[in-house]
Every structure is written in C-alpha cells, then in structure tokens.
Amino acid sequence: MERLGDFKLPQFFNYPPLFTLQPVKETREKQVQLWKELILSYCRSQKIFLIGLEEDFPLFSNPVIERSLSHEAREVFLSALVNEGRAEWMDKGHRKCLILWLRIQEWADYILNFVKENGFEDSVMTIEEIRSGVETRGTELAGIDRGLLLRVLRLLEQKGKVAIFKGTSADDDGVKFSA
C-alpha cells in the first residue's frame, strides 16, 4: 500500500466510492466515520493543524485511482469532526479548519503532564520555546499551531494553572507554569 509521506494509507484508500459522497444515510454515516478517522490520524502523524478547503490537501485525492473529494464532501467530513469537537472552523465561510486530534481540554492536560514530567513547575517558557524549543522536541507540542497553543494556555490561565505575560514582541510572549 502507498504512503503519504510517512503515513501508511489503509487498503481501502484505493476504493473509488470512498471519494464519492454517498447519498444513502447508513452508508454515508459509515463513510463519514472512516474519513474522520483518516483525517485525524493523518494530521496527527504529519503534525498538520490547519486544512484549507480550497487548497490541495494530499489526503483528499488519490492519483492512483484518479479520484478526489469534492468541495462538498470535504466540508461534510470536516463538519462531522467539528460537531464532535475534533475540529473547528476558523472562519464563517468554512474555508479553513483547525484539526484537533487532541481536543482543547486534552491539550491542556497534555501540557500539564509535560510540565510535571519535566519538572517545569514555577519555570517560565516563551511561546516560541514551547513550539520549537529543544524541551518539547519529540513531543506532541513540537510544531503546535500558535493560535491553538494560545487558546490552550488561556484555558489553563483561567484555571489558575499558568500565567501568561506579554514580552517586548510577540515572539517574547511568555508563560509561567504554576506549581
């Protein structure tokens, strides 16, 4: 079976009906489930946070069988993820979608866990250090979408788990983890 980057595609990726939005309710439900699963695992493996509906997205077409998803189908599958809290539309026009292979709350828990395991309680990190620093290398946090990270941190701030403070420039925005 082919691969997309280092993502192993499932066998049924070569099944042509996968790329046609199925009109029959039960069949469609099954199809939507498979696509949700595919999108989440692909994005997670490739660290993809944003999908632009109008841009080429490797998972949404299969050159081997010459099939690709219509705009409508993409929107249907992504909306299904949005309804489950596994994605969020970035704009009213549904042109950009934030994929949450971890939900916001799960990200928050992940960060707390990361802090605890690495003994970062009471220490300070900049946003950029979290996104691309050596400390987070090899974790899910490496390469995390900036907007997403800020939202997660704000959630933690509300709960009193972190304190966000402004730096001289956006790059210097920092966060202090509480004990």
Binding site: K8, P10, Q11, F12, Y15, P17, Q22, E26, T27, K30, Q31, Q33, L34, K36, E37, L38, S41
Partner: peptide, 11 residues
C-alpha cells in the same frame, strides 16, 4: 465495503 471496515482499526 463501508459497512465492513472498522473505523476504530482502519488497517
């Protein structure tokens, strides 16, 4: 084939 594929284990 949709009915047969298990979404929790797509492989």
């Amino acid at each position: 084939l949709f009915t047969e594929i298990d979404p929790s284990d797509i492989y």
